[in-house]
């Protein structure tokens, strides 16, 4: 009876293993359903990927559609994508980062092996990652020593392994079949990697993969306006190409409104929606249009712009900033008169408002929930001054450096950090 039971168990295990092997997650980069095509932006990204391997940073405010755009372009069959979404908290610690990088790379070469003719042998290259992972796991399991845990050097070795195997892969494509037109690509938002050494190691190896060895493209996508400052501090920025994704143009928004939104509204309510008025409020931010129209339909047309959730949130945020700033008892924010002292005192912060001691803490509502909306970096009067200027009809923007000279870097960066203003380093594609 006992041996029968063991035999049955072993059989079940084998069967389960076989099943597991068949349900590998596939290429996760698929097109977003209902994607609204944005020609200029797509062409810019395609052109970048069509050229020499480069390190590209894709900027754009949150919910501007960066991910949708990348997914649309990268789901085309000629691209092989290694995708890391660092907004997911699992990347915060080194062991998860290592494991995720390693499994992704293994998957990448397995995909090449199974999807491309003549590349079957790359199945073996995929095993390199698997066995590296097993070695690391064994090392940790065998030892109670704290030195046995996953270190930056493990990530470095992984990147090196990847570099060597990619080089092999590309040599083959040049000499024999020439079919590997693939661009490997990383989509990163390094919000949560807290280890300075690891981040530096990743960035350095990405520079090697792109600039030096010309093996693949690397794309970083971020909505952090201070990301550029951060990359500059790490001596990476000068090697990067910048693309800025902005909101849609008025013409695009009109098309979206006419073709995608209006058909969702019951006919009797359509008369209450007027494009120009809505455009004044929501501009080219399609996500806000979508939310508004959904709420509008749900409320049977009883919703005006001033009671829409995005308006209420913006309105509340401004009021909270003004009230908190005017009532802040301590740490009197610098006035325009004492810029010099405040600059010296907070030079490090002003380079990146959320730069922690590790130097890599990027502003993130996820990692910094308690600071979420409020900071006493500016006075209520300073904010009101900026607001009144920006609402004048002929003032689409304020020059950053000029305002910094006037109010102090800390105050201006505080408004950006406080999610009132966006800092635009270069003009958007559209």
């Amino acid at each position: 009876t006992e041996s029968n039971r063991l035999l049955a168990e072993a059989r079940r295990e084998i069967e389960e293993q076989r099943e597991r092997a068949q349900i590998r997650p596939k290429h996760t980069f698929t097109r977003l359903p209902g994607f609204f095509p944005r020609k200029a932006e797509m062409q810019t990204i395609e052109r970048t990927l069509g050229g020499e391997p480069a390190f590209t940073v894709l900027f754009g405010a949150s919910s501007v559609g960066k991910t949708a755009l990348l997914r649309e372009v990268l789901s085309q069959p000629q691209f092989h994508v290694l995708h890391f979404d660092l907004r997911i908290a699992g990347f915060a610690d080194l062991p998860s980062l290592y494991t995720r990088l390693s499994t992704q790379m293994e998957q990448y070469f397995e995909d090449i092996a199974s999807n491309m003719e003549g590349y079957e042998e790359f199945q073996k290259e995929a095993w390199c990652f698997k066995h590296d992972r097993i070695n690391v796991q064994n090392r940790i399991a065998d030892s109670n020593d704290s030195r046995a845990r996953i270190r930056t050097s493990d990530v470095a070795r992984l990147m090196e392994l990847f570099q060597v195997i990619s080089a092999l892969c590309f040599q083959k494509s040049n000499s024999q079949t020439n079919i590997l037109q693939s661009s490997l690509l990383k989509y990163l938002e390094p919000v949560l990697i807290q280890s300075t050494d690891t981040m530096k190691c990743l960035l350095d190896s990405m520079l090697v993969l792109t600039k030096q060895d010309k093996l693949c493209h690397v794309i970083h996508a971020t909505s952090d306006p201070f990301y550029q400052t951060w990359l500059r501090q790490l001596n990476v920025m000068q090697h990067c190409k910048i693309i800025n994704i902005g909101d849609c143009t008025k013409a695009e928004t009109r098309t979206f409104f006419r073709d995608h939104l209006i058909p969702r509204v019951p006919e009797r309510l359509r008369g209450r929606l007027e494009f120009e008025g809505l455009y004044e409020a929501f501009g080219g931010k399609l996500a806000h249009w979508q939310d508004f129209i959904t709420d509008f339909v749900n409320s049977h047309g009883q919703l005006d712009i001033r009671s829409s959730s995005h308006f209420l949130q913006a309105h509340a945020l401004l009021n909270l900033h003004i009230i908190h700033s005017s009532q802040a008892a301590t740490g009197a924010p610098p006035g325009p008169g004492d810029n010099d002292t405040s600059y010296t005192a907070s030079a490090r912060e002003s380079l990146h408002p959320n730069l922690g001691p590790a130097g890599f803490k990027i502003y993130s509502p996820i990692s910094n929930p308690q600071q979420g909306y409020y900071s006493a970096d500016f006075t209520a009067m300073q904010l009101l001054k900026v607001m009144s200027r920006l609402t004048k009809p002929d003032t689409p923007y304020l020059p950053y450096f000029m305002l910094c000279r006037e109010l102090g870097v800390r105050a201006v960066d505080g408004m950006v950090k406080g999610r009132v203003l966006d800092l635009r380093w270069i003009e958007p594609v559209s």
Binding site: A281, H310, F311, H315, Y400
Partner: peptide, 23 residues
């Protein structure tokens, strides 16, 4: 020339006008 500061969203500019009026 140089970096520009704009309201973080179009609706933020809209809300700014409203708040300025209130103040």
């Amino acid at each position: 020339v140089g970096p520009k500061l704009i309201p973080i969203t179009p609706i933020m500019r809209y809300a700014m006008a409203e708040v300025i009026e209130e103040y």
